[in-house]
Amino acid sequence: MKNCAYALVVNGTDGKSDSITAGRPMRDTFVISTDTKIIEMAPRIYFERNSAVISGEMMKKLDDIAANASKYRNLQVYIQGHSSAEGDSDFNMNISRERAKSVLRYLAEKRGLSPLSMTTAGYGAEVPLADGNSEGANVKNRRVEIILIGDKQ
């Protein structure tokens, strides 16, 4: 959904509501279920500094995500890469794209995920999850977020 201005207003069964807008990072993973569809933000995949290589631990997470994705019909997968703000903006943009592509390759080749659509996007350090330049913040920001959208079985 890159380059797309959108606002998703979610009304919860508890009477509370919240909105998801373009450029706003989601602090927590979420599952939104309607009568026919499920939108889910899967657990985040984290990366080492300056690296787009998926670690063994993160591969297990991706395996779980792929297994979970099998419950959807007409699955659409949005893979969004991010970086910390340590490098220059070109480097950050590039590494964020590479991270998203690494996840795409893993899901397509190792897990044989066969969705209706799959898309990668890189956002560099433009949408940080944690503010600041501390190592703690950087670790959180070097990430890939995966949004799954599908029909209920």
Partner: peptide
């Protein structure tokens, strides 16, 4: 790729089935 058609921006910015 993997017997399916994919599209990519020339600058590599997004890959899409």
């Amino acid at each position: 790729y993997n017997s399916r058609l994919w599209i990519i921006n020339r600058d590599g910015s997004s890959v899409s089935l």
